[in-house]
Design a protein around this nucleic acid. Structure first.
Length: 453
RNA sequence: GGCGGCGUGGCCGAGUGGUUAGGCAGAGGCCUGCAAAGCCUUGCACAGCGGUUCGAUUCCGCUCGCCGCCUCCA
């Protein structure tokens, strides 16, 4: 059982999957014409965390996220670089997956491409024309918004209150400024596909309709994406499905923006930072931790200070992992603390409250350390197992062991001998030498441990 | 113009009608040969002004400041 804020009702609602025990999710993926930025990183992490949690809850999760490889922006980039649109799309798709790997984001069960779904798109458009929901003009095929009941549900706006041409020039041949292109006719020497409506390219919104319904079926459980996709993209997806007589997503989820100062990070504002850049400068886990620390619907500020803060928090987690991972693996009699686990699950179940869930993970860490210090070994293991399980659900990989070169280990052993001989000056010398090699040696009982300097 | 959201302690960031969020940073202590790590203790926080209430950071109203959407966008 999980409750999530549903955009179409503007309230937190319990989700009952259509099929008990299963959970089908469609998340709008990237248009592959450039390198992914922090905004992309946030959405993939949010849904990655959701997915992991649902799997932990025992759901058989089917997770689909598309690659949009038909788009004017891809064409623009191709023209600029003198290469084909396909080359542009292939290049940036590859960057996309590489970056997701670095973020530790699970690959979707399937990642459909718009170019593989043209026949289905054409079929849907034909259906929409036949049913009178769409019409043709000399420029293409358009969806007639005013005839469709319930348009504006996701935007929570009545059509009459939308401001026509607020930001974009109104195309004169459309019956209403809000009508959107299902198929855009282009010259025969341009990038395009043959269709019953003429040679052209599909509009952006149609691909997600056919891919989501085609792979997950009618009435799939959850459709997600960034808040900026809510309107018009998701609205336009939904209305096409509805107009074609099919039940679309049962639940809509949107994640908030990444902010730069007081402004939304966006391609159009040009104030974006690439994920690759961030991943080069900071521990790759720090971004996931930042995403976890803010609620998914809130705006999230990413600054170097925040990333450094997150890195220090990771140190605490890693120090805990170094202390407890082996101990937990060897102990088969004690299970994860049930209270700690149920608190965590409750927080995650209530609109994916990762900040609170994370705070419980930290409390379990404190509980484990404290119990251990007090000599309550079993209690410590119970807390530690809970914390480790929780971190895993959140997708945070702990660094419980680091590879230390043999010469560093040798120095540490020499230091132990020096300490036993109470030659502390010599011991401190060894410690400095180890530090110079990039490691901090820490006393641990009769032995020693290391961490990176 | 319409719709939606936000304003929390040094920073980040949850939450609640009356009890410790959590992380980072800071202070004191314990442990340690010294450290590190860890533990314990510590911080007169809830934009402003009114109202409701025994009691509001939490509910209502107003004011101020800020952000987002209204067919590029994760």
């Amino acid at each position: 059982m999980i409750r999530l804020f549903d955009t179409q009702f503007s309230e937190i609602r319990e989700i009952e999957p259509k099929e008990a025990g299963k959970f089908s999710i469609y998340v709008c993926g990237p248009t592959v014409y450039d390198r992914p930025h922090l905004g992309h990183g946030r959405f993939v992490l949010v849904y990655d965390i959701l997915r992991r949690f649902l799997a932990y809850q025992g759901f058989d999760v089917r997770f689909i996220s598309n690659i949009t490889d038909i788009d004017d922006k891809i064409l623009d980039r191709a023209s600029k670089e003198g290469i084909s649109p396909k080359e542009v799309a292939d290049t940036y798709e590859q960057v996309w997956w590489e970056t997701l790997d670095r973020l530790g984001v699970m690959r979707p069960d399937e990642a459909p491409h718009a170019t593989d779904w043209l026949a289905e798109m054409v079929e849907l458009i034909e259906l929409l024309i036949e049913s009178g929901a769409a019409y043709s003009t000399p420029e293409g095929v358009y969806f007639e918004v005013e005839k469709a009941p319930g348009y504006g549900l996701l935007a929570r706006q009545d059509l009459s209150e939308l401001r026509a041409g607020a930001r974009v020039e109104v195309v004169q041949t459309k019956r209403s400024p809000f009508d959107f292109a299902l198929w855009k006719l282009v010259e025969s020497d341009e990038w395009g596909w043959q269709s019953p409506f003429g040679y052209g390219r599909p509009g952006w919104h149609t691909e997600c309709v056919v891919m989501a319904l085609g792979l997950l079926g009618e009435g799939f459980d959850l459709h997600g994406g960034g808040l900026d996709l809510c309107f018009p993209h998701h609205e336009n997806e939904r209305i096409q499905a509805v107009a074609s007589g099919r039940e679309f997503a049962r639940h809509w989820m949107h994640n908030g923006f990444v902010m730069v100062g007081d402004e939304k990070m966006s391609k159009s504002l040009g104030n974006f930072e690439t994920l690759e850049n961030l991943l080069e400068r900071f521990d790759s886990r720090s971004y996931r931790l930042l995403v976890l620390r803010s609620h998914y619907r809130s705006p999230m500020d990413v600054t170097p200070e925040n990333s450094e803060d997150a890195e220090r928090a990771l140190e605490r987690i890693d120090a805990f992992a170094r202390r407890f991972t082996d101990l937990c693996e060897r102990n088969h009699t004690v299970g994860a603390d049930e209270g700690a686990m149920s608190r965590f699950v409750a927080a995650m179940s209530e609109d994916l409250n990762t900040p609170v869930a994370l705070s419980y993970a930290f409390e379990a860490i404190t509980g484990a350390n404290g119990s251990m210090d007090r000599g309550q070994r079993d209690k410590a293991v119970a807390y530690a197992k809970a914390a480790l399980a929780q971190l895993e659900i959140l997708g945070l990989v702990v660094e419980s062991k680091i590879d230390v070169p043999a010469d560093v280990v040798a120095l540490a052993e020499l230091r132990v001998a020096a300490r036993r001989a109470k030659d502390y000056a010599l011991a401190d010398n060894y410690r400095q030498e180890i530090l110079d090699l990039g490691y901090v040696v820490e006393d641990a009982g009769s032995g020693f441990g290391f961490r990176r300097a």
